[in-house]
Design a protein around this nucleic acid. Structure first.
Lengths: 298, 298
DNA sequence: CGGCTCGATAGGTTATGACTATGGCTGGTT
DNA sequence: AACCAGCCATAGTCATAACCTATCGAGCCG
């Protein structure tokens, strides 16, 4: 059985005339005639009675007609549903950020995203790098925004922007008075870090790998905001990504944020998605929005 | 779009594996692969994401899947409905009788019909010959039982049985004492008849066409039972078809029913149906039941 | 009777769906 | 590092299904 056959049958049931039905279906009369006969044959019942000058539905035909109509209607639903989804820049897009990027990047790009991609519903998630990559591969999210590099197997990667690290020290700290901080200046300081799993932790350790710092093993922060509080409380110093020091997150409340002297240590933030993703258009549009925002506001 | 494509899609969505899905659909993997691609192309959206070692549904695919499932389920419904209707001796069959046959024939054949055609639901109607033939041609009823002959255009006819006419006279009538009545005996009698439209009226007039009878113009009966009452009341005599004199309808209540001497005048009762009717099997079965009943009980 | 309408049939062409063989990518194994 | 196995896509070929035009034949009507 075939949707086309059902279409023929419904047209015929409505017009009660082979010629008219054929015309309505844009086929020749013999074609429709043969197809209807084939349908009857397949079903093993006569659907129509061919009286001279009059075509009528049999009992069975009358029973089948509404079913056929429903099927056709639902098949049209599929098509129109697909047509609606056709716009690649519409629908849901699940995007995950790592915790040290999401809360700080989103306020900056939200306006532009809403404006440039008004039909795209962004579903936002926050996971640490490992978990994010797993969920990305599992198809749970479509796009990840995190610090590069990441293992690239099966994934597409695009750099979005470079983000400088800054130093956060207590207000009364000697470094608070210097215009710029060199990495060597951090020698001997107590470094406060995020708990395991946060890539920022590794990045900070990496920046300080050439000098002698001691990590405060008693405290490991679960978020940048906690970390900020700990520094303000005088428990040590820390590195913050630059976006986390902008606007309401800047100096003050007992905290001084200092930028590094050149060469400024930084991390690269990028987008990752499955190479096979069906949403590459939407993904690229989101990436574009983030990139242009960041190059404008840097 | 095609039901087959939807079947492929659902199989693929359920197995998440092109090879497995193809196997389940009894086609080769490339066939299913190409067909799915064609479906995606037709809909203008990607339904599946082909990740290495993993096939997942896209957002759109997930939306379409339940619709596709429903359509397939309903198409199966059509098939099973047709299969159920496949038995030609089941379902409804609309049968019409003329008034001078229906009430007298039905009690005789009802038992046999129920026994031999238990799955056939007979819908019974009663119309005069003209109206019956119109409704038959209009497809309102499938089978008619009436007195032959009838115009045969587009109709199939089958003789069922011959029915003798009898004479009904008041108890105290001179004819009531004779063992047999000759047609000539009716000369000079007042003949009571059914109203216009009843074929029995014409048949009675036809039987008496060679002799001189006078019709009682003041009364025309609307049914055989009325006619019977009128005869019992002494308003005249009439001809009754033999079935209308059997069992509870026989002599008594002031009425004497006499059979004719040979050659016995009679009418032929037959079945008519549209030559194009889709129910010829059921119709023939009904005819057979009536014929055998009548040849047994005559 | 002749012409008309309408569905069925016949014969030939095209399009579609199916097959086998093969290619390319990925991921795990030796 | 090279190889192999799994899996989907591609290429090329073929059978069949669907379509067309032309024509037939049955019923209807003037």
């Amino acid at each position: 059985m075939n949707l086309r056959d059902l279409r023929y049958f419904v047209a015929l049931a409505e017009s009660r005339h082979f010629g008219k039905a054929a015309e309505r279906c844009f086929v020749s009369q013999p074609t429709l005639s043969a197809q209807i006969k084939k349908l009857e044959n397949y079903l093993g019942v006569q659907l129509l009675e061919r009286q001279p000058r009059k075509v009528t539905l049999t009992e069975t035909g009358q029973k089948i007609l509404p079913l056929a109509r429903r099927i056709l209607q639902e098949s049209d639903e599929i098509v129109s549903l697909a047509r609606n989804e056709h716009d690649p820049l519409s629908g849901k897009l699940k995007v995950a950020f790592i915790p040290t990027i999401g809360p700080y990047l989103l306020p900056l790009v939200a306006r532009k995203l809403r404006k440039q991609l008004p039909r795209l519903k962004l579903m936002l998630y926050e996971y640490q790098t490992q978990s994010l990559l797993e969920r990305l591969r599992a198809g749970e999210v479509e796009l990840g925004v995190l610090a590069l590099p990441v293992p690239m197997d099966g994934l597409e990667v695009r750099e979005l922007y470079d983000e400088a690290f800054t130093v956060a020290v207590p207000n009364q700290h000697t470094l608070a008075k210097k215009p710029h901080v060199k990495i060597d200046d951090l020698t001997g300081e107590t470094l406060l870090l995020l708990e395991d799993g946060h890539c920022l932790r590794d990045q900070a350790l990496d920046v300080c790998s050439m000098i002698d710092v001691k990590e405060n093993d008693d405290y490991r922060a679960t978020s940048l905001e906690t970390l900020r509080q700990m520094v303000a409380a005088g428990l040590g110093i820390t590195l913050l990504p630059e976006l986390a020091t902008r606007g309401p997150f800047g100096s003050g409340h007992g905290l001084a944020v200092k930028s590094f002297a050149k060469p400024v240590p930084s991390r690269t933030v990028g987008a990752v998605w499955r190479r096979s993703s069906a949403r590459s258009e939407a993904i690229n549009a989101v990436c574009d929005a983030i990139r242009t925002t960041m190059s404008e506001k840097s």
